[in-house]
Design a protein around this nucleic acid. Structure first.
Lengths: 256, 256
DNA sequence: ACCTGAACACCGTTCAAGT
DNA sequence: ACCTGAACACCGTTCAAGT
């Protein structure tokens, strides 16, 4: 990790005065969210514009398709101009990732039962992730401390609190739910990706899986069970099944 | 530990004879697992040796720390020599990923209640992922069709079948469980990573989170709740809590 | 305040050539 | 059968220099 953060700002802003001097404990935690953006006075580009273009590029070409040079080209500037607005590529990705979170429709906790609210949020998350597959590759790479991610977490937390959870269990319920959604959706991305990258049709994929699992009776049986079902439908059903299980399990923890 | 990859590459398998010719439907599904490895006759390197070195490098420097050149250096060869054993870097990662799966201790379905078996498997998975953090970044990137991954899936499937699940629900239960484990563990990796990369102590991290969540009452409350607890312990507790919920939820689906 | 271009230290991968 | 080195087309990032 390099340390260009100190050269980024011409003048320190008041909120973050305490950032750069050597501290007792060690380095300051580095993240876009612990720092102020550039003022962005007048003409030129803006962070917003850059992030929006980055998300477009990510949607179109995936995480590996995003490079500073390509992004610069899309913006009609040199690649290195971007570094005026953003310390490095990782920060840009943090920004893009929070932009992703901003797209989710926040559930309204009081309108329905908590199960309905949570289920709606879960399905919304899944659809959002499938719409922006690159998000799945970012989850394990950086903590999400952006305002949009936090806003969503807050609403979900409130929902669980209203449901009757208390203390640490509010957070346990929260992380359990989002863990389920991510864990269920991310492997879908891998399949979609290899399908898209290779341009395979479903039959080719099915054949590959059949071949790989040949000789393992449990798994050939599994494939046989869903042989003539639409893969997308199976995934939806699987998602709903597991979501129901998670909600039931949480409810059981509520009454005891 | 690394035992199961060994037997795979030494001799050509008959199963995959039909691989390279152009097919009717379009391109052949491309994956290490749908093709035969090089015969690997005599002295030289072996796939095994290369994969083992790759895993070491991944453990030491993470996914972004693995390059063909560095790996070559570690093996005492040129970077391009590796391409004789492996088609490209992605294939190497597929192999490394399955090597990862080979490290898990397969549960013994008949020894205990299915809940105990599954819980043990879940904790084992989590520990394994935390031990090889790069695995978390690979999940969303490529389907896991390697023999070790499949062997684990098969045992888990058998466990759920013995528990009384039938038809598609065997798979639903299976994917629900693994989704939970991955979804719960992957975000841990992100924190560990940024902690390690920056060399932060827990207080610095806590301070950063506090700053980011300031102004969102639900989240400041959340932080307050776990303020003087060991973060690692909190995560363990959260994991066990959610795991219990998932198991209960699955059981409820079993009796109805 | 913003943008540029050249430059540096890396990548993955191909390929003709060696043994 | 295996390995090499040079070469190509890329990367992220820095920095002095421009406006």
């Amino acid at each position: 990790m390099f340390d260009s953060t100190r050269t980024l700002y011409d003048k320190p802003r008041t909120v973050c005065d305490c950032l750069y001097p050597g501290e007792v404990t060690g380095k300051q935690f580095t993240s876009v969210w612990t720092r102020d953006p550039r003022p962005a006075k007048s003409p030129g580009r803006s962070r917003d514009e850059i992030v929006r273009a980055a998300v477009e590029l990510l949607d179109a070409e995936g995480l590996e398709g995003l490079s500073m040079r390509k992004l610069g080209a899309r913006l009609g500037t040199g690649a290195t101009s971007i570094y005026w607005y953003v310390a490095n590529k990782d920060e840009l990705l943090e920004l893009a990732y929070d932009d992703f979170w901003g797209e989710i429709t926040l559930p309204e906790p009081t309108a329905q039962t908590w199960q309905q609210t949570v289920a709606a949020a879960a399905h919304g998350m899944r659809r959002l992730i499938l719409r922006h597959p690159w998000s799945g590759e970012l989850i394990g790479r950086m903590p999400s401390l952006g305002p949009n991610a936090l806003a969503f977490a807050a609403v979900l937390r409130r929902t669980f609190k209203l449901a009757g959870f208390a203390g640490l269990e509010i957070d346990y319920a929260n992380t359990t739910l989002t863990a389920y959604v991510f864990g269920m959706t991310i492997p879908e991305l891998a399949w979609n990706k290899s399908k898209a990258d290779g341009g395979y049709d479903p039959d080719t994929m099915r054949e590959a899986v059949t071949k790989a699992t040949a000789g393992i009776p449990e798994l050939t049986e599994s494939i046989h069970n869903s042989w003539d079902l639409d893969p997308d439908q199976v995934r939806e059903m699987a998602f709903s099944f597991g979501l129901g299980a998670v909600l039931d399990g949480l409810e059981a923890r509520l009454v005891t």
